[in-house]
Design a protein around this nucleic acid. Structure first.
Length: 908
RNA sequence: GGGCGUGUAGCUCAGCUUGGUCAGAGCAUCUGCCUUACAAGCAGAGGGUCGGGGGUUCGAGUCCCUCCACGCCCACCA
């Protein structure tokens, strides 16, 4: 708890302001309070959402469940930071905001990890048997799921852990079975023998999405197939000679004159001697190779389709382990597919049938998970047809029922859904949801919710359940439904939170997961599962390189948390999240945001110290602080106060708008810029005289506390720990809730915005900067005396004169006077005010002259430009009035500036 | 073979949807400061013909065309 490091006073949020301030350590140390707040929030149950008697509109984010394969990576950290930002922001706005956490069993990936573990123990899954193996899997899951929870908590994630789910838990299983059975009964899920991608290493079928095409330098082999009953032969071209052992035909294009006369005849398969019909098919490209294709129906998708069209069957010559079968002939049986290739080529050479070998670059599908070339195989699998619902998913995006952010993904979405093919959902693994299908002794298949139900259907108890499990993405696809209580249509969570508000995830699983959730959602609820998807980029290293374990450039979120604090990690990730762009993560940048935390810490410390001094002076004005500032906002406040409140208003407006637009980067930029460069650099500096003077200035105090309070609220969704820690120390009157985490989020009071005052202040800032530069450019210290003269007409002086003491303070002036300054003073035109500064100094250095000359050149160039435009009839007649006016004003300004510069330079 | 994206200060990137105070931020660099909130700081400064070319327009990082260079996704020429 906070108390552990900051003593009991801080423990109680309602302790006296003065003692709070005293406990504020000079050192900014996130590690001293982050874990404590995570515990306090959790103990206070702040993030558990009521379903019934909830006040506030529902807002719901479901976590993309991390795989229970290991620890979280930077991508998870990024997504968690963004999700937490959204949820905390909405929660503070009064929404009944739910962030539902969970993990994914990640079938193949996790099974591989555990198998590897077994291997290191000298065991194997086969040795253990299915039941024991599953026990091991669950142990593994237990460990890793709690690791993940710890990690999410250390990032400050405000999840409702009472609702935590796992893709293999009972509720999910019920959902999976329900979905499967319903889709089976609608004919959308079916079993059959079709060509699938097979991974020999994994020993399972995999879906199209799990296949990665790689460009491979291979060879194109030209092989002669003798013709039956006559001399001569046909030459076919292939990249996979070993598959010829399973050839059933040879095909040519029907229009190809070279081979037309041979259609209907037979060729003889070398090495085997099988008769192969010569067929004609449009699919064959006469331009490629020899214009003849050997047809291996069971080991190539194209061949399979062509063979089907011609009623030709197939032979399995490669087995599920990647070795040749007995069908390949005794000479090849048992050989690995690549060994077989070499041997086939040897034999062909011996028979002088290998006519040519040419280099050939082609694309080969590889198993994404295990890396080896995929083997196209005809196999008995379960499939899911999503054609119809894909169309609805497509429409959902087109009608904006579902928004993709950034919308550049719309086209990709369309393309994928328009070309969707049946999805192989069965996997020959042990870790996953078992297919709810049972076989009776006659081999009949019965799909049912339970074994009992299947027995009823089958009329016998002698049933064997299907050995296969379902693709992980089948259960993750049901995540939005199942986590909220489906298939119970009346589940309170489902009624309250479905459809959820927004999904934040990486673009890399747009099809794997997002599209499938949308389709499943539409299939079973007639609604999209979320209103919007914010797709993040990939987290890369500082140089923009992809992070990978082999490259050794990965960053561990928790190590970063230790070094920079969770808030700095979060801020960095949010600030870099530009839509449609990858995220180059530079630790230097993170150090910059830790410094920002330090800034916030110290700004608060400053304010509290001053208040404390005031109180110590005997004034008991506690109840004036913080409270109802709006009442006295208008004219009683000084310019600096109204200025910072105007800037605050603008910032509040911007941040809320940017959050709504998923522009977290710009929201963070606005927060950073406001707090550091407006509040700290200017307002706090402007406050100092008022806060240290003899005369009490409750309006200044109040404003400072108010702006701090509002800033901390604004920042809380991004930097929850720091803001909570610091906010708890504000005077009690400024706090209306026990925790900042559930305090109200600022809303902009547009009537506080004063753009005219802001413009005037910009003038003051320019003037102060100019004055500082005068000393600097002469190489003088800040203590060298300097006097300012305002030389132009008096109207322009108002804001300067009104704030003369402050300007003097900031620029360290001895005096500000109206009227002409001494001859030797240096002159300029700042924000339309003619000013002269007199400094006790030797002549200005040559660099100054140089700079002035350079500036003059720039001014004259721009002058020419402006005059040119104003002399252009077309411009005058076609450009809108305000633009022309703008140029005129600019011209006048430039002319004055030119005069000033010439005068300054003319002294030589 | 299609589709998408990127190219703006030394570095990493905003800005481009709705053309005219957008040429910006952070970091880095240079100079001077321990000015009692913060040296994880303060103050000041330098630095870019917005990838090349063409077009539309009174006016273009901003719209159109084209070229070049990277990156990604999808795709059953064996």
């Amino acid at each position: 708890m906070t108390g552990e490091t900051h003593q009991p006073e801080a423990e109680s949020a309602s302790s006296q302001a003065s003692s709070d301030a005293q406990t504020m350590d000079k050192r900014f140390d996130p590690a001293s309070y982050e874990a404590a707040w995570q515990r306090r929030w959790s103990d206070a149950n702040l993030f558990c959402c009521p379903t019934t008697d909830a006040s506030g509109e529902p807002f719901c984010v479901l976590i993309p469940p991390p795989n229970v394969t290991g620890k979280l990576h930077m991508g998870h950290a990024l997504q968690s930071a963004l999700q937490d930002l959204m949820v905390r922001w909405r929660r503070m706005q009064g929404y009944n905001a739910l962030w539902l956490p969970g993990t994914d069993h990640a079938g193949i990936a996790t099974q591989l990890m555990v198998e590897r573990q077994l291997e290191s123990e000298g065991s194997s899954r086969i040795e253990l048997g299915r039941e024991k193996f599953e026990e091991r899997m669950w142990e593994w899951k237990q460990t890793y799921h709690s690791n993940i929870r710890d990690q999410l908590e250390r990032l400050g994630s405000s999840c409702d852990w009472s609702r935590e789910r796992f893709t293999l838990d009972e509720g999910l299983n019920l959902a999976v079975r329900t979905a499967f059975v319903r889709m089976y009964r609608e004919g959308l899920i079916y079993r059959g023998e079709y060509m699938v991608n097979w991974s020999p290493i994994l020993g399972t079928a995999i879906s199209d999405l799990e296949v990665e095409m790689k460009s491979v330098q291979g060879k194109l082999y030209h092989i002669a197939y003798p013709l039956e009953g006559e001399d001569g032969s046909l030459v076919v071209a292939t990249t996979r000679p070993e598959t010829m052992l399973g050839d059933m035909a040879v095909a040519a294009h029907p229009e190809d004159e070279r081979y037309r006369h041979l259609i209907g005849q037979n060729a003889i398969l070398p090495l085997i001697g099988r008769k192969l019909p010569i067929i004609a098919d449009e699919h064959v490209d006469p331009e490629f190779g020899t214009g003849l294709v050997k047809i291996t129906p069971f080991h190539d998708l194209n061949d399979y389709e062509m063979a089907s069209r011609h009623g030709i069957g197939g032979l399995r010559v490669i087995d599920f382990d990647g070795r040749m079968t007995s069908e390949a002939g005794p000479e090849f049986e048992g050989l690995d597919r690549f060994e077989a290739r070499a041997k086939v080529l040897d034999r062909l050479r011996e028979a002088e049938l290998l006519k040519d070998v040419v280099d050939h670059v082609h694309n080969v599908g590889h198993s994404q998970r295990s890396g080896e070339p995929v083997e196209p195989m005809v196999s008995d699998q379960w499939f899911c047809n999503m054609d119809q619902v894909a169309e609805r998913a497509l429409r959902a995006v087109e009608t904006d029922e579902l928004e993709l952010h950034p919308p550049t993904w719309n086209k990709t979405w369309r393309h994928w859904l328009e070309n969707i093919r049946p999805w192989v959902i069965s996997r020959q693994l042990w870790w996953g949801h078992r297919v709810p299908a049972w076989y009776d002794p006659d081999g009949n298949c019965h799909v049912a919710m339970t074994r009992e139900e299947a027995a009823e259907l089958a009329g016998t108890d002698e049933l064997r359940q299907d050995d296969d499990v379902l693709d992980t993405w089948f259960s993750s696809g049901l995540w939005p439904l199942s986590t909220l209580g489906w298939p119970d249509e009346d589940a309170p969570d489902l009624k309250t939170f479905y459809p959820t508000s927004v999904l934040i995830t990486g673009f890399d699983i747009l099809f794997f997961w997002v599209a499938r959730m949308v389709m499943m959602g539409l299939q079973f609820s007639d609604q999209v599962p979320f209103r919007a998807v914010h797709l993040t980029g990939l987290v890369r290293d500082a140089k923009g390189e992809k992070m990978s374990k082999t490259k050794g450039n990965t960053l561990d979120p928790l190590e970063l948390v230790e070094e920079y604090g969770a808030d700095a990690v979060r801020f960095t990730l949010c600030a870099l999240d530009t839509p449609g762009r990858d995220i180059p993560l530079d630790p230097q940048r993170m150090a910059g945001y830790r410094a920002f935390g330090n800034k916030i810490w110290n700004a608060t410390r400053f304010a509290l110290t001053r208040l404390q001094e005031e109180s110590a002076g005997g004034a008991d004005r506690g109840e004036n602080r913080g409270g109802d500032l709006e009442v006295s906002h208008s004219s009683q406040l000084g310019d600096p106060e109204r200025w910072i409140l105007s800037r605050l208003t603008d910032t509040i407006e911007t941040v809320n708008r940017k959050f709504e637009d998923y522009r977290f980067d710009e929201a963070c930029g606005a927060l950073h810029g406001f707090f550091w460069h407006e509040l700290c650099d200017w307002y706090i500096e402007l406050c100092k005289p008022a806060l240290s003077g003899d005369a009490p200035r409750p309006d200044v105090e109040k404003t400072l506390v108010y702006v701090l309070d509002q800033s901390l609220r604004l920042l809380h969704p991004v930097m929850p720990h720091l803001t909570e820690e610091v906010w708890q120390r504000l005077p009690e009157e400024a706090r209306d809730t026990e925790f900042l985490a559930v305090a109200s989020y600022p809303t902009a009071r547009t009537d506080w915005r004063d753009e005219r005052l802001e413009a005037e202040f910009e003038g003051i800032q320019q003037l102060v900067t100019w004055l500082r530069a005068q000393r600097k450019e002469r190489g003088l210290g800040a203590k060298v005396p300097m006097r300012l003269f305002l030389e132009g007409g008096d109207d322009t002086h108002r804001v300067v004169l009104d704030n003369a003491p402050l300007i003097s303070h900031l620029a360290r002036l001895e005096s500000i006077e109206v009227g002409p300054g001494p001859e030797r003073a240096t002159r300029d035109l700042i924000a339309g005010i003619e000013v002269a500064a007199e400094i006790d100094a030797p002549d200005e250095g040559p660099e100054l002259k140089e700079r002035l000359r350079k500036e003059l050149a720039g001014v004259e160039k721009e002058l020419g430009n402006a005059r040119g435009r104003l002399g252009n009839e077309q411009f005058l007649s076609k450009a809108p009035e305000h633009v022309v006016e703008g140029v005129r004003a600019r011209l006048a300004e430039l002319e004055e500036r030119q005069a000033v510069l010439l005068k300054e330079l003319g002294d030589d």
